[in-house]
Write a protein that binds this DNA or RNA. Structure first.
Length: 202
DNA sequence: TGCCAGGCCCTCTTTAGGGCCTT
């Protein structure tokens, strides 16, 4: 059974290269379409959270100041994930922070990332919006808690990934949706979706 | 001083521009 760690970060901004840091991490472990474990933590990276971000996430400076150090949290996250392949909604964003925060903690980040945003754009071009919350509504996914909190958003992304796996099985005839197939699908143009699947099935 | 993300995707494209998505 394919095991995937679905991750979501709350951060102080968009880019670790600009000095932005993670404030919260949530990880949901899936086997196939089932959630088998979950883990989350606030983290203190020693930087101030802008007011706009506080308002967006509800994560305050006082909350992160009371949280464990970022390096300690990331070491625990790395142990929890191990070498499990990963997924996230707009994975380019979470992968940047995963790699940057682990690098600051002296840890490697070798895991490949599947992206539910890229996969949704290919599988559901008729959706009006591919934001995580909009897709959750569009698919009628189960509610997972307040948006813009790491574990709730990781749960929603995990439910979306389960839906993607389900639709690949039921609508496209893929018996076993390997992580490698997801990585292939997300890197090909939308119009080549079916040919990639057919090559995989051959 | 002034600027400030990065990458994918579409199209009135490819010698480019702008919208979307993540916080």
């Amino acid at each position: 059974m394919t095991r995937v760690a679905v991750i979501d970060f709350e951060t102080t901004g968009m880019s670790p290269l600009q000095g932005d840091r993670a404030t919260e991490i949530g990880v949901v472990l899936m086997e196939g379409e089932q959630v088998v474990d979950r883990w989350h933590s606030l983290m203190n990276a020693g930087v101030r959270i802008p007011y706009f971000i506080e308002s967006l996430t509800g994560i305050s400076n006082a909350m992160v100041q009371a949280a464990p150090p970022a390096a300690q949290v990331m070491a625990e996250a790395a142990r929890f994930v191990g070498d499990t392949p990963m997924a996230a909604h707009n994975a380019a964003f979470d992968r940047r922070f995963w790699q940057a925060e682990l690098a600051l903690a002296g840890q490697a980040a070798p895991q490949p990332f599947a992206c539910t945003l890229l996969l949704s754009r290919r599988l559901y071009p008729q959706a009006a919006s591919h934001r995580l919350g909009a897709l959750a509504q569009w698919h009628a996914l189960p509610a997972s808690g307040p948006a813009h909190r790491a574990l709730a958003d990781a749960e929603t992304a995990a439910a979306l990934l389960a839906r993607i796996r389900h639709d690949l099985r039921r609508q496209h005839g893929v018996a076993d949706v390997h992580h490698g197939l997801l990585l292939q699908l997300q890197t090909h143009p939308r119009h080549r979706l079916q040919s990639v699947i057919e090559r995989h099935l051959a």
